[in-house]
Protein backbone atom coordinates (compact mmCIF):
# COMPACT_ATOMS: atom_id res chain seq x y z
CA UNK A 1 0.00 0.00 0.00
CA UNK A 2 1.26 3.40 -0.83
CA UNK A 3 2.18 5.36 2.23
CA UNK A 4 -0.42 7.89 3.34
CA UNK A 5 1.66 11.03 3.73
CA UNK A 6 -1.34 13.28 3.15
CA UNK A 7 -2.77 12.81 6.62
CA UNK A 8 0.29 14.55 8.08
CA UNK A 9 0.43 17.41 5.58
CA UNK A 10 -1.66 20.54 5.68
CA UNK A 11 -4.29 20.48 2.93
CA UNK A 12 -3.40 22.42 -0.19
CA UNK A 13 0.26 22.96 0.70
CA UNK A 14 1.80 20.67 -1.94
CA UNK A 15 3.66 20.89 -4.23
CA UNK A 16 6.41 22.18 -1.94
CA UNK A 17 8.85 24.98 -2.81
CA UNK A 18 11.97 22.84 -3.12
CA UNK A 19 13.76 22.55 -6.46
CA UNK A 20 13.61 19.47 -8.68
CA UNK A 21 15.77 16.75 -7.12
CA UNK A 22 16.25 18.49 -3.77
CA UNK A 23 16.67 15.85 -1.10
CA UNK A 24 14.68 17.78 1.50
CA UNK A 25 11.45 16.22 0.27
CA UNK A 26 12.93 12.75 0.69
CA UNK A 27 13.96 13.57 4.24
CA UNK A 28 10.56 15.09 4.99
CA UNK A 29 8.88 11.87 3.92
CA UNK A 30 11.20 9.93 6.17
CA UNK A 31 10.36 12.26 9.03
CA UNK A 32 6.65 11.76 8.45
CA UNK A 33 7.02 7.98 8.52
CA UNK A 34 9.02 8.23 11.73
CA UNK A 35 6.46 10.50 13.41
CA UNK A 36 3.75 8.08 12.32
CA UNK A 37 5.67 5.03 13.53
CA UNK A 38 6.18 6.68 16.93
CA UNK A 39 2.51 7.62 17.09
CA UNK A 40 3.14 11.26 17.94
CA UNK A 41 -0.03 13.26 18.45
CA UNK A 42 -0.39 16.26 16.18
CA UNK A 43 -1.59 18.58 18.94
CA UNK A 44 1.22 17.52 21.21
CA UNK A 45 4.07 17.80 18.74
CA UNK A 46 5.93 20.99 17.86
CA UNK A 47 8.09 21.17 14.75
CA UNK A 48 10.49 24.08 14.93
CA UNK A 49 12.84 25.46 12.28
CA UNK A 50 15.11 28.40 11.55
CA UNK A 51 15.66 29.96 8.14
CA UNK A 52 16.68 28.42 4.85
CA UNK A 53 15.31 25.88 2.41
CA UNK A 54 15.12 23.07 4.98
CA UNK A 55 13.48 25.41 7.44
CA UNK A 56 10.43 25.73 5.23
CA UNK A 57 9.57 22.12 6.07
CA UNK A 58 7.37 22.75 9.16
CA UNK A 59 4.99 24.91 7.14
CA UNK A 60 3.80 21.81 5.30
CA UNK A 61 3.26 19.74 8.40
CA UNK A 62 -0.14 19.59 10.08
CA UNK A 63 1.38 19.97 13.56
CA UNK A 64 2.21 22.84 15.92
CA UNK A 65 4.78 24.53 13.73
CA UNK A 66 7.20 27.34 14.41
CA UNK A 67 9.32 28.87 11.68
CA UNK A 68 11.74 31.09 13.58
CA UNK A 69 14.76 33.25 12.74
CA UNK A 70 18.01 32.17 11.13
CA UNK A 71 19.90 29.78 13.38
CA UNK A 72 17.61 30.19 16.37
CA UNK A 73 15.44 27.09 16.06
CA UNK A 74 17.11 25.11 18.84
CA UNK A 75 16.78 28.03 21.27
CA UNK A 76 13.09 28.62 20.47
CA UNK A 77 12.52 24.87 20.74
CA UNK A 78 14.26 24.81 24.12
CA UNK A 79 11.75 27.40 25.37
CA UNK A 80 8.84 25.34 24.04
CA UNK A 81 10.17 22.14 25.60
CA UNK A 82 11.03 23.71 28.96
CA UNK A 83 7.61 25.33 29.22
CA UNK A 84 5.78 22.18 28.10
CA UNK A 85 8.00 19.15 28.68
CA UNK A 86 5.10 16.85 27.78
CA UNK A 87 5.26 18.01 24.15
CA UNK A 88 7.34 16.22 21.55
CA UNK A 89 9.69 18.74 20.01
CA UNK A 90 11.34 18.21 16.65
CA UNK A 91 13.78 20.74 15.22
CA UNK A 92 14.57 20.70 11.53
CA UNK A 93 16.97 22.84 9.58
CA UNK A 94 19.93 23.01 7.29
CA UNK A 95 23.68 22.85 7.81
CA UNK A 96 24.28 26.60 7.62
CA UNK A 97 21.33 27.40 9.86
CA UNK A 98 22.32 24.79 12.41
CA UNK A 99 26.11 24.94 12.49
CA UNK A 100 27.05 28.48 11.42
CA UNK A 101 24.65 31.16 12.60
CA UNK A 102 22.97 28.66 14.92
CA UNK A 103 26.11 26.84 15.98
CA UNK A 104 26.03 28.11 19.54
CA UNK A 105 22.40 27.14 20.08
CA UNK A 106 23.08 23.76 18.49
CA UNK A 107 26.01 22.79 20.68
CA UNK A 108 24.29 23.97 23.83
CA UNK A 109 21.13 22.03 23.04
CA UNK A 110 23.43 19.01 22.71
CA UNK A 111 25.19 19.85 25.97
CA UNK A 112 21.95 20.18 27.93
CA UNK A 113 20.77 16.90 26.44
CA UNK A 114 17.24 18.26 26.35
CA UNK A 115 14.73 15.76 25.02
CA UNK A 116 14.30 16.97 21.46
CA UNK A 117 14.97 15.52 18.03
CA UNK A 118 17.17 17.73 15.85
CA UNK A 119 17.11 16.77 12.18
CA UNK A 120 19.81 18.49 10.14
CA UNK A 121 19.40 18.32 6.39
CA UNK A 122 22.99 18.74 5.28
CA UNK A 123 23.24 19.73 1.63
CA UNK A 124 26.56 21.49 2.26
CA UNK A 125 25.47 24.84 0.89
CA UNK A 126 23.29 27.89 1.53
CA UNK A 127 20.65 27.09 -1.06
CA UNK A 128 17.99 29.70 -0.44
CA UNK A 129 20.35 32.63 -0.87
CA UNK A 130 21.82 31.19 -4.04
CA UNK A 131 24.69 28.88 -3.13
CA UNK A 132 27.17 30.50 -0.76
CA UNK A 133 29.53 28.13 1.05
CA UNK A 134 28.50 26.80 4.44
CA UNK A 135 30.59 25.24 7.24
CA UNK A 136 29.80 21.92 5.57
CA UNK A 137 30.90 22.80 2.02
CA UNK A 138 33.86 20.58 1.16
CA UNK A 139 37.25 22.29 1.08
CA UNK A 140 38.07 23.20 -2.49
CA UNK A 141 34.46 23.12 -3.68
CA UNK A 142 32.90 25.91 -5.68
CA UNK A 143 30.19 28.09 -4.25
CA UNK A 144 28.96 31.52 -5.29
CA UNK A 145 31.35 33.00 -2.71
CA UNK A 146 34.19 30.55 -3.33
CA UNK A 147 34.60 30.68 -7.09
CA UNK A 148 38.34 29.99 -6.67
CA UNK A 149 37.63 27.00 -4.45
CA UNK A 150 36.57 26.89 -0.82
CA UNK A 151 39.51 27.61 1.52
CA UNK A 152 37.55 26.61 4.65
CA UNK A 153 37.78 23.29 6.45
CA UNK A 154 34.45 21.62 7.17
CA UNK A 155 32.44 20.64 10.20
CA UNK A 156 31.57 17.00 10.67
CA UNK A 157 28.10 17.65 12.13
CA UNK A 158 27.75 14.26 13.76
CA UNK A 159 31.15 14.49 15.45
CA UNK A 160 30.30 18.02 16.54
CA UNK A 161 27.06 16.78 18.11
CA UNK A 162 28.78 13.89 19.88
CA UNK A 163 31.52 16.19 21.14
CA UNK A 164 28.98 18.69 22.41
CA UNK A 165 27.17 16.05 24.42
CA UNK A 166 24.19 14.87 22.36
CA UNK A 167 23.24 11.44 23.64
CA UNK A 168 21.96 10.10 20.30
CA UNK A 169 23.62 10.83 16.97
CA UNK A 170 22.79 9.18 13.67
CA UNK A 171 23.50 9.84 10.03
CA UNK A 172 21.63 8.85 6.92
CA UNK A 173 21.45 9.95 3.32
CA UNK A 174 18.72 10.93 0.91
CA UNK A 175 19.74 8.01 -1.30
CA UNK A 176 19.14 5.54 1.52
CA UNK A 177 15.58 6.73 1.87
CA UNK A 178 14.23 3.61 3.55
CA UNK A 179 16.66 4.09 6.43
CA UNK A 180 15.75 7.71 7.20
CA UNK A 181 12.53 6.98 9.07
CA UNK A 182 14.20 4.29 11.14
CA UNK A 183 16.98 6.63 12.25
CA UNK A 184 14.57 9.46 13.05
CA UNK A 185 12.19 7.12 14.87
CA UNK A 186 15.05 5.87 17.04
CA UNK A 187 15.97 9.48 17.71
CA UNK A 188 12.41 10.39 18.70
CA UNK A 189 12.20 7.40 21.05
CA UNK A 190 15.55 8.27 22.63
CA UNK A 191 15.33 10.29 25.86
CA UNK A 192 17.67 13.22 25.39
CA UNK A 193 18.92 15.33 22.53
CA UNK A 194 18.93 13.25 19.36
CA UNK A 195 20.71 14.58 16.28
CA UNK A 196 19.95 12.95 12.96
CA UNK A 197 22.06 14.28 10.13
CA UNK A 198 20.68 13.53 6.68
CA UNK A 199 23.14 14.08 3.86
CA UNK A 200 21.24 15.33 0.86
CA UNK A 201 21.89 17.38 -2.21
CA UNK A 202 21.31 20.77 -3.70
CA UNK A 203 21.50 20.20 -7.44
CA UNK A 204 20.55 23.81 -8.17
CA UNK A 205 23.21 25.74 -6.29
CA UNK A 206 25.87 23.14 -5.46
CA UNK A 207 25.66 20.44 -8.11
CA UNK A 208 25.84 22.76 -11.09
CA UNK A 209 28.92 24.53 -9.82
CA UNK A 210 30.70 21.33 -8.90
CA UNK A 211 30.49 19.29 -12.08
CA UNK A 212 27.56 17.10 -11.18
CA UNK A 213 25.59 16.71 -14.37
CA UNK A 214 22.37 16.05 -12.52
CA UNK A 215 20.93 15.20 -9.14
CA UNK A 216 21.18 11.58 -10.18
CA UNK A 217 24.98 11.95 -10.17
CA UNK A 218 24.76 13.49 -6.73
CA UNK A 219 22.59 10.66 -5.46
CA UNK A 220 25.09 8.16 -6.89
CA UNK A 221 27.82 9.88 -4.93
CA UNK A 222 25.81 9.52 -1.72
CA UNK A 223 25.39 5.83 -2.52
CA UNK A 224 29.14 5.45 -3.02
CA UNK A 225 30.40 7.32 0.02
CA UNK A 226 27.96 5.93 2.60
CA UNK A 227 29.22 3.03 4.70
CA UNK A 228 27.06 1.55 7.47
CA UNK A 229 28.85 1.60 10.83
CA UNK A 230 28.78 -2.20 11.09
CA UNK A 231 30.45 -2.58 7.71
CA UNK A 232 32.98 0.13 8.52
CA UNK A 233 34.15 -1.82 11.56
CA UNK A 234 35.56 -4.44 9.22
CA UNK A 235 37.23 -1.98 6.85
CA UNK A 236 40.76 -0.59 6.86
CA UNK A 237 41.61 3.08 7.14
CA UNK A 238 42.48 3.14 3.43
CA UNK A 239 39.19 1.57 2.52
CA UNK A 240 37.38 4.18 4.58
CA UNK A 241 39.17 7.10 2.90
CA UNK A 242 36.53 9.50 1.57
CA UNK A 243 33.68 7.47 3.03
CA UNK A 244 31.01 8.64 5.44
CA UNK A 245 29.62 6.45 8.20
CA UNK A 246 25.86 5.99 8.34
CA UNK A 247 23.51 4.54 10.90
CA UNK A 248 23.43 5.15 14.65
CA UNK A 249 26.85 6.60 15.41
CA UNK A 250 26.43 7.23 19.10
CA UNK A 251 23.91 6.42 21.79
CA UNK A 252 24.19 6.68 25.55
CA UNK A 253 21.94 7.13 28.52
CA UNK A 254 22.56 10.27 30.47
CA UNK A 255 20.53 12.80 32.44
CA UNK A 256 17.94 14.64 30.39
CA UNK A 257 17.53 18.38 30.94
CA UNK A 258 13.80 18.65 31.70
CA UNK A 259 14.08 15.79 34.16
CA UNK A 260 17.02 17.52 35.77
CA UNK A 261 15.00 20.71 36.03
CA UNK A 262 12.08 18.80 37.52
CA UNK A 263 14.49 17.88 40.31
CA UNK A 264 15.40 21.56 40.70
CA UNK A 265 11.70 22.29 41.15
CA UNK A 266 11.40 19.50 43.71
CA UNK A 267 14.39 20.81 45.66
CA UNK A 268 13.14 24.42 45.48
CA UNK A 269 9.74 23.41 46.83
CA UNK A 270 11.42 21.72 49.80
CA UNK A 271 13.79 24.61 50.46
Amino acid sequence: MAYDYAKHIRPGKLPHIWCPGCGHGIAMKGMIRAIDACGLEKNNTAIVSGIGCASRLPGYMDYCTLHTAHGRAAAFATGVKMARPEMNVIVVGGDGDGTAIGGNHFIHACRRNIDMTYIILNNSIYGMTGGQFSPCTPTGAKASTTVYGNPDPTFDISKLAIGAGASFVARGTAFHAAQIDKLIAEGIKHKGLAVIEILDDCPTTYGRRNKFRSVVDMMKRLKEIAVPVAAAAKMTAEQLEGKVLTGILHQENKPEYCEQYAQVIARAKCA
Binding site: M1, Y3, L14, W18, G21, C22, G23, G25, I26, A174
Partner: peptide, 17 residues
Amino acid sequence: CMQCELRCPDFAIEVHK
Protein backbone atom coordinates in the same frame (compact mmCIF):
# COMPACT_ATOMS: atom_id res chain seq x y z
CA CYS B 1 10.30 -2.61 -4.10
CA MET B 2 8.89 0.85 -3.22
CA GLN B 3 12.18 2.64 -3.86
CA CYS B 4 10.66 5.09 -6.33
CA GLU B 5 8.00 6.13 -3.85
CA LEU B 6 10.53 6.40 -1.03
CA ARG B 7 13.00 8.45 -3.06
CA CYS B 8 10.55 10.76 -4.77
CA PRO B 9 11.24 14.17 -3.18
CA ASP B 10 7.95 15.56 -4.42
CA PHE B 11 5.26 13.21 -3.09
CA ALA B 12 4.51 12.48 -6.75
CA ILE B 13 4.66 8.68 -6.81
CA GLU B 14 2.39 6.25 -5.03
CA VAL B 15 3.06 2.53 -5.29
CA HIS B 16 -0.02 0.46 -4.57
CA LYS B 17 0.90 -3.18 -4.01
